[in-house]
Amino acid sequence: MRIPGVDVRFAIIRIASTAALFTAWEWYGSQPGQFALPPPSKVFPALVESIVDGGLVQAAIGTLWVGAVGFSIAAVLGVTLGLVIANVSWADNTLTPLVNAAYAAPITMLVPIIGIYTGLGFTGKVTLVVLFAFFVILINTEAGVRQVREDLVETARSFEASRIQIARHVMLPSTMPFILNGLRLGVGRAVRGAIVAELLLLVSNLGLFLIRAGATFNMPRLMAGIFFTMLMGYAVMWFAGYLERRSLRWRGEATY
């Protein structure tokens, strides 16, 4: 129902309302005695300063590295197990309820004991990230296999396609968008897992930056850290979405 292209009214409303909000924030934050919510004029210099002096960038690289390692492991495990569970009916019947429960359960509750099994170092952080990202990848892979249209499989079978050919030419292409969607969601969770690990498990990198700013009541710096986390989230999710779209286009299956 919407007209593509530039929507002037939309742009005006967005810019005006955003400007109004920031003005109000600036005014409120500059009130004498107001300290918990510093105005943008203090937050953004703090953000630029923290980026320029390298502290934030270095912290982000450290956090993302933990996330990336954990994500890679979760991706391999999640896709493999998802494919197995979806194709083996007794595994589906018995494991899916457990997977669903684990998917919905807060992984964070394992933080106090995870050190017992993995130590508090890099392994512990990566384990937490794996647990954060694994289930969403598994569940989406499974859903992808489940929605493969039986009539397409039958069509392939009528051409005497072998099991492997059916898997390669029917199952994989129609499952792929779901797997990629799961992986993209997994990226988001991996980043969250890494931040949780560095806030609660072993304070370091971004977690350390935030905690130090909070503990010293350096509010502009704390807000800058949150803003930076947001920007990092944008960048990572944009990149994951870009990879997803690109791999679907490359396979020529962008639309379903």
Binding site: A36, V191, I195, T229
Partner: peptide, 26 residues
């Protein structure tokens, strides 16, 4: 959407856990 859309998006991509130190102070 013009007024709210970009904040909701920002909320979505931000790891909510990063808000903990701020929420405690607030």
């Amino acid at each position: 959407e013009a007024v709210l859309g970009h904040y909701i998006n920002a909320w979505y991509v931000t790891s909510k856990e990063a808000l903990l130190p701020l929420m405690i102070i607030l």
